[in-house]
Simulated scan of single mutants.
Amino acid sequence: MDVLSDAVAAMRTGRPHSSRQDLYAPWGLRFAASSGAGFHVVLQGSAWLLPSEGAPVAVGPGDVVFLAHGCGHGLASDPGVPLREVRPREDGTWPEPTPATGQLGEVPDTVLLCGAYHLDRARAHPLLSELPEVVHLPTRIGAHRSLRAAVELLGAELEDPQPGSDTIVTSLLDTLLLYMLRAWWQREQHGSGHPTGWSAALTDPAVTAALHAIHEAPSHPWTVEQLAGRAGLSRATFARRFTSLVGEPPLTYLTWWRMTTAGRLLRGGDVPLRLIAQRTGYTSEFAFAKAFKREYGVAPGQYRRRAS
C-alpha cells in the first residue's frame, strides 16, 4: 500500500472545492482559519502571501502555496493593501464580487486558483502533521511537472466548465493534493541531504518495508520480530530505527493505524462492526469495540451516528 495515499485518505472528509478568481490591483483578501487545508496558485501576475506569523512571501506566476494546517492568512497585490474578509461557500464559489473589478475587456492583474480540503484533525497522520504552516513551491523549469500539469488541467476546467466537470474537478483536486505533498517530501529528501522524521522514514528501505506491511495488512497479528524480518534487520535495531524516524514504536503505530482505519470505515458507510473488527485485526466485535472506545472515547456505533 502507498503510505502517503493512506495518510491523506485517513484524514480526508467531504468533497474538496476550488475557485478561479480574476483580481484587479489594488486588492487584498483575508482567509479565516479553518479545520481543513487550503492552497493558492498564481496562474497569472503575482501576489503576496501574508501568513499569520512571519514575513510576507512573494508568490510569482506558476507558484503553488499549500497551507496544510488551515491557519488564517491573507493574499494581496501588495503587503500594505487593506484586507477584506472572504468566506467561500461550501461548493467553493465566492459569495461576493472580488474587491475590485476591471473595465470591460481589461486584463486582470492577477488570476488566482484557490481551493480547500476538509480534514479530520482528530486523526491527523503524523506524516502530514510535520508540514510547516506554509509550503511554498516556486515554479522552476523542469520541476514538479506532474503538479504543473494538474494545475493547468484544473484551471482549464474552472475557466470553461464542460459536461462532467464536477467529477473531473473533484478528481483533479484530490490528485493535486497528493502532487503538492509529493513535491514537498521530495524537496525535503533532496534539499538538505539530511531528511528527518517522516521524510527520512519514507526513504529508509527498512522502515518503509515495515510501514508498507502494516498498511497492506493491518488485520495481520504483527509482532516486532515479524516486522523486523520484513525490514531485514534484527529486532532491536529495527525497533530503534522505526521509533526514531516514525516517532513511536512499531506496535504503537500499528494500533493507531488500525483505529484510524476503523474510524474511516465507520464514517464511510454501513460496514458491519463484525467486518470492521476483522479488517482491523480484532478477534471479536467485543474486543474491537473496547479498543475503539479506549481510543476515541465513544462506542463505534455512537461514533458512526455522529459522523452520519
Rank of each mutant, 00 (worst) to 15 (best):
T175E: 13
P79C: 11
L211S: 08
W94V: 10
F286H: 12
V41M: 06
L173A: 05
W48T: 02
R87N: 09
L4S: 00
G232E: 07
V8M: 12
T260L: 12
T98D: 15
P126H: 04
T101W: 09
A289D: 12
T170S: 15
A100K: 08
V246W: 01
S234Q: 14
E248T: 10
G301D: 03
A116E: 15
L211I: 03
A231S: 03
H118F: 11
E285M: 10
L104N: 06
C114N: 08
T208M: 09
A25M: 14
L23D: 01
L172R: 02
L50G: 00
A9T: 13
G281A: 10
Q189Y: 05
V135I: 05
Q21E: 08
V42G: 03
D6Q: 11
M11L: 11
R267G: 03
W222F: 03
L43A: 06
R182H: 03
G36M: 07
T280C: 00
K290F: 15
R240L: 09
A68M: 03
P95N: 10
D78Y: 07
M11E: 13
D6G: 05
P97W: 02
E152Y: 15
P272H: 01
D109S: 06
G269R: 05
G92V: 07
V65L: 04
A307R: 07
V107A: 11
Y24Q: 02
T261P: 08
H73F: 04
P82H: 04
L173I: 01
P272Y: 01
P221N: 13
P221I: 09
R241V: 08
E133V: 13
E248F: 09
Q226C: 05
G301Q: 01
L112T: 03
G105R: 00
P56K: 10
W94P: 13
A307W: 08
R12K: 06
I276H: 02
P250K: 03
W222N: 02
S77F: 05
T175G: 12
E216C: 12
G263C: 08
L173E: 04
V134G: 07
T196F: 09
E225N: 11
V42P: 03
L227A: 02
G297L: 01
H136C: 10
A291N: 10
L131Q: 02
E225I: 13
G268K: 07
G102F: 00
F31W: 11
H144D: 08
T170F: 15
I214R: 12
S284K: 09
A122C: 13
G28K: 00
T252K: 09
H118W: 14
L83K: 05
P99A: 04
Q162L: 15
A150H: 09
L50N: 04
K293G: 11
L131D: 07
P56Q: 01
A149D: 07
E285C: 07
E295Y: 11
L128M: 10
L29S: 06
A299V: 13
W27V: 02
L275K: 13
A210L: 02
L176Q: 02
V207A: 00
T167N: 15
T196K: 10
I214H: 07
R279P: 03
Q103T: 01
A10D: 14
W184N: 01
L173N: 06
V65N: 02
G232I: 05
A277P: 01
L158N: 05
Y253R: 14
H125E: 07
V151R: 00
E157Q: 14
L4R: 00
E106S: 00
T255R: 10
L67C: 05
D204M: 14
A33T: 02
A9F: 15
H194E: 10
V134T: 11
L119A: 05
